[in-house]
Write a protein that binds this DNA or RNA. Structure first.
Lengths: 155, 155
DNA sequence: AAAGATTTTTGCGAATTTCGTAAAAAACAA
DNA sequence: TTGTTTTTTACGAAATTCGCAAAAATCTTT
């Protein structure tokens, strides 16, 4: 996989604002042909640089309860716990971390009942979890996949 | 804003797999007309139910260092700190939480140098932050905006 | 630096998709 | 039931995407 060049980053920056911008539109904006934009996007997708997705508003989907849960795992079982948890649809993020917690996960629920069921039934069943430190989200300020920064795109 | 019905959820489920699926394509799959899919998607966008975005792979963008940082804030300054931090492009997530930390943020960096600069220069400048508990991401297992679950879509 | 090989970009016409809009159908309310 | 509102469908026009071959640019190897 070749390193991303300036045009690639410009394309990503445009698409992270609107994932459905037309190739012709992007081409116009960047002063290139539609074919160039199309072939670059095809290459970026093949190289796994990005995916086209949607960003739903959890609240509007009825997911009123979000939590970040720090987990302590039994030595040697961190990996299997992480893979197990990744399968749950309510879990949106799973990572292994240095620091207080071996794993940190983020999950969405319709209500508190669903959260407590998740902690008491799902997590407790999961062989290898020693402790779970639940933080309830009270307010969300930012949540974004816009990783491409202006400074990265500037020539 | 009216409650989402079964068709809306089906559309969202399809788009969360591929944000660029054609309306005609979705229409075909769901046995509806292109116009119906189009008007529903237009309505969902207007109601702020979702946005078309892309999901870049941070590694492929050269963002090799990710961190979750738990913050303790001075009473009364939590909100202004959160809003301040949301402006930083390297910060992808900011939330207020119950539990050990008042705020939890997630941020991406090109390297450790950039992270330490962020903590020492950005965070320390930020009036109202009493303590920062940095957890370094060692491995990412899951990171997704796919909030619509099969069970939500099933009739 | 030239020649050759490879990659990228461009430029088409054809196929497909999206758009605008009006009529039909369905859902809802009185 | 009847009238009202909302949603779906239908369809031609406009725009976009696709497939592909030629041109241009870039990279290699003498």
């Amino acid at each position: 996989m070749k390193k991303l060049d300036h045009v690639d980053k410009q394309i990503l920056q445009i698409l992270q604002e609107d994932g459905r911008r037309a190739y012709t539109d992007i081409a116009h904006q960047l002063g290139l042909s539609e074919g160039t934009i199309r072939s670059r996007i095809t290459r970026l997708l093949q190289d796994g640089v990005f995916q086209f997705v949607i960003h739903p508003d959890p609240e509007k989907l009825g997911l009123h309860v979000q939590a970040i849960i720090g987990l302590t795992t039994k030595l040697g079982l961190q990996n299997s716990v992480a893979e197990e948890l990744s399968k749950f649809p309510e879990v949106r993020f799973v990572g292994a971390f240095s620091g207080k917690h071996d794993l940190i996960i983020q999950a969405c629920f319709h209500n508190n009942e669903e959260l407590i069921t998740f902690v008491n039934e799902r997590l407790s069943q999961c062989e290898g979890i020693l402790a779970a430190d639940v933080s309830l989200e009270l307010k969300q300020y930012k949540d974004s996949f816009s990783f491409v920064r202006d400074e990265d795109v500037a020539i």
